[in-house]
Structure formats: structure tokens, C-alpha cells
Amino acid sequence: MQHARAAARRKPFPWHVVVFLAPAVLIYTAVMIYPLAETLRLSFFDRTDEGARFWVGLVNFERLFLDPHWADQFWNALANNFYFFVVHMAVQNPIGVLLAALLSMTHLPGRTFYRTAIFVPAMLSVVIIGFAWKLILSPIWGVSETLLGLVGLDFLFGPWLGKEGSALTTLALISVWQYVGIPMMLIYAALLAIPEDISEAADLDGVRGMALFFKVKLPLIWPTIGIISILTFIGNFNAFDLIYAVQGALAGPNFSTDILGTFLYRTFFGHQLELGDPHMGATIATAMFLIILVGVMAYLWGVQRRMRRYQF
């Protein structure tokens, strides 16, 4: 087979592919994938008081889910996380869609300004945002009370961040306030991608205004809203910063704002008298990993498969 040999000779090993790919893959593997795997592995271990590591199987998970000392905190944090997510979905998406729809009205003057301004909070650090709102909502300063007074609603005012019943909702709304610019932009981009022809065809069919939006445009941007939802879901497990900045590691009052992120931090590093426990920390991280996995899978198989993507 002379031909085959000729072909083999002219194909030197494609080193350039390796050179292009290797640095990224190495760093990614070493600093992201390996520690993630290591964290999953550690969830099956514990250590003696002398620090020696030993295999415990699923004992850590048993403790996390069933032992009252852990389970109470875990289920509380999980429920809070879920609530946090629901508030985002229920408030952030409708506001995002509304703002994007208004911005995408043809020839609306000043939309660059609106876009820029509404996106400002999303650029700032959660720490800054958290403190700013803490000050604004503080009864000592009284800014919120005054503002509510302007519209005759000052009787509603209370130390929202300090009360068990309202603290988590308040934090979730602060988070929505900060990040609503992102869904707004993504939906805005999706709306802009709908060709003008379609709106004009709808116009000729007598569909315009609100009907145009709800009957033609909204169905076309469902996939975008789906993506935003799954991004929000994943982002929830990163929501540590806001709560840590505003309420501290104990996620007060009385753990009413505790979510998995703060729970993980407290467990891993310890706080006050309790020592940090890397193995339980790893166990919590693994549980979060599984929850995300289930969520993403549910989305991919349940939602996205049924949703049609439109090519324009």
C-alpha cells in the first residue's frame, strides 16, 4: 500500500492543535475540575482529632440530611435558596421583559440613556450594593421612611432587614434590583433579533400593540427567557456575597437568610466557637453540585427540548 504510506508520511503529528489547546485545558483541569473532583471525593471522608483522614462512605450525607444538628440548617438553607430563586423568577423576569419591550419600541428617543442607567447596578460589587441598601433601609438614617412618606406609605416602613419574616424577601429584592439589567439586555437583544418583516406582517394581519407583543414576540423569546431562568438558578448558588455582606456569616436574624452558600462558608471555615470542617463543607458542596445537576438536566430535558428555537 504505497499510497497509504505516502499519506502517513505527509501527516506529521498536528502539534499546533496541542499548542492551542493545552494551556487552557491544563489550567482549567488543574484549578477547576481537579478541585471540584477532590471536593466530591472529600465528602466521603472524615478525619480523626489528630487530623488523619479516613473513609466514611455516605455517613457525611446521612448527617447532613438527617442529624438534627446539620439537617435543620441544611433544609432551612435549601428552602431559603429555593425561595430566593422563586422571588427572582417572579419579579426579575417580568420586569426585565417589560423594560426590554419598552426599550425595543422603534425609534424611542433616549433608549441608550435608559439602557445605560438601568444596567449600572449590575456593574457594581454586591458588597457595595449590600451596604448601600443596608444604609438606605436603616431606621437610623430614615431615608426609606421619608421616601415612603412622600407617597403616603410611611406606615409600611419597618426594619425589614432585621425582622425574620421580611429579611430574606428584602435581600432577594435587592438582588433583583441589582441584576435586572442582565435579563433586560438579553431579552432586548432577542427582541432586536426578530426581523422587522415579522412585525410588519403582523401589522398587516391587524395584530399590533399589546397583541403584537403577546401573540408574536413573546413566543419568539421564550428560549431566551428559558436560558435566563437556568442562569438565575445557577447564580443562586453563588448568592453568598450579598448575604455575607449585609447579614454576616450567621445569616441573621436567626438564620432566616441562610442559604447554601453561607451555610457552606460557615461549615468550612467555622465561626465563633465552632471549628471549620472541610469534610462537611465538601459534603455540602457535593449536595449543591447534585442539586445544580438535577436542575440543569431537568431544564435540558424537560424545558429546552420542548421549546422551539427559531432561526430568522
Binding site: 471536593t39 453568598f240 463543607g281 465538601a282 449543591m288 453540585f289 445544580i292
Partner: peptide
């Protein structure tokens, strides 16, 4: 997967 989940590692 958020990288924070690998913090222990």
C-alpha cells in the same frame, strides 16, 4: 458548575 463548589479542594 460554579467554581465555588470546588473551594474545599
Amino acid at each position: 458548575i460554579p467554581i465555588r463548589l470546588g473551594t474545599v479542594g
